[in-house]
Computed example of a mutant assay.
Amino acid sequence: MAFIVAMVMSAFGKRIIAEEIFLDSLPQAFEGFRILFITDIHRRRLPQALLTSLKGPVDAVFLGGDMTEKNNPLNRLLSNMALVTSIAPTYAVHGNHDYNANTSVVDNIIRGSGAVLLMDENVAIERAGALLWLTGVNFSMNRGETSYPPLPPLAAVANACRIILVHDPLWLSQRSSVPADLILAGHTHGGQVVLPFFGQRHVDAFYQEYSAGWFTLPKGDESQAFAKLLISRGFGTARLPLRFRSPAEIHVLTLRTNSSTQKGEFQSQ
């Protein structure tokens, strides 16, 4: 019983992980730019008091899909979207559970909140005359190994700093190159319930290696540079509200240029 209680408590945790991300091509104008990254909310209600306190320090909110799920009350999605869009400009991509819900109604709520829903699109975020490019990869209903379309090009943009927001990191498995500086993903829940000795019992071998946390990937172009990948464990749960050795998490990411010597003011909670 104590073990089950501990798993439920882990599933309903409200941990914020605050980290600094150093990017080679980040424009100086975006030094200290803060992103609130939340993915896999599912049926949970976002913590209003905790997130409202981030209004001001946070410059943008990125939602990595599964903002709701089938039979989740629509007023919960309405409330969650109203909260995040009150904090900062919000950008979102679909997850598989968003498609299992009433997609047209879900999309109307997302767009009606003022959030930008990216479906294989680029958007430029401007700050002091400089641009940071965000590409939103739409979830593939065919599970994504081969059915994702090519990334939308950044036409005539030299030395652009690009962030890719994608729900399922499996998208990476069929790519020969990763034309981005930072990729943010979710979907895996970090295994959600990770038992000793058994590890993470995912169907696809890809998730055995890429389950949760930070990874470094070669861009695969002539630059011989590397991209950073974050796979979040997410905030909600699939099926049962249980977690073990994979706690719920929300991220505050502070972007830094490589010339920066500053330290962030946030601490993980």
Rank of each mutant, 00 (worst) to 15 (best):
V166A: 15
Y99L: 12
G191V: 01
V106H: 05
A185D: 13
V178K: 07
P89E: 11
P153S: 03
N108Q: 15
N122A: 04
N142T: 11
N71Y: 15
N72H: 09
E145Q: 07
L83C: 12
L74K: 11
N71C: 04
G65C: 02
A185L: 02
G129Y: 10
H189T: 00
P152S: 08
L170C: 00
P150Y: 04
L134W: 02
L117M: 02
I109W: 15
W133P: 02
Q192A: 09
A158G: 05
I125D: 08
Y91N: 04
E145P: 05
V116Q: 13
A88M: 03
A101S: 11
I164G: 03
G114N: 09
G95F: 01
A160G: 14
L182P: 09
G56V: 07
H187Q: 06
V116P: 00
A115T: 10
L172K: 03
V61D: 10
T146H: 11
L83I: 10
G186H: 04
P57Q: 07
G95H: 03
V58I: 14
N108A: 13
Q174K: 12
M141Y: 08
S177L: 09
S113G: 05
G129I: 13
G186E: 05
V123M: 01
A128M: 09
V116L: 07
D120H: 15
I110N: 10
E126Q: 14
H167F: 00
A180I: 15
W133Y: 13
M81K: 04
K70L: 03
L117V: 09
N96Y: 12
S79Q: 12
N102C: 11
P150L: 04
M119P: 01
A101N: 14
S147F: 03
A128Q: 09
N72K: 13
A180K: 00
H167Y: 07
D98R: 02
L170I: 12
Q174C: 08
S176D: 09
M141C: 10
G190F: 14
D66T: 02
A82F: 09
R162G: 01
A130N: 13
L78C: 07
G186A: 11
G144A: 11
A128F: 05
P73V: 05
G186T: 00
L170F: 15
V93P: 06
V116D: 02
S104W: 12
V58D: 04
N138Q: 13
G190S: 10
E126D: 12
N96C: 03
H187R: 04
W171R: 01
V84R: 07
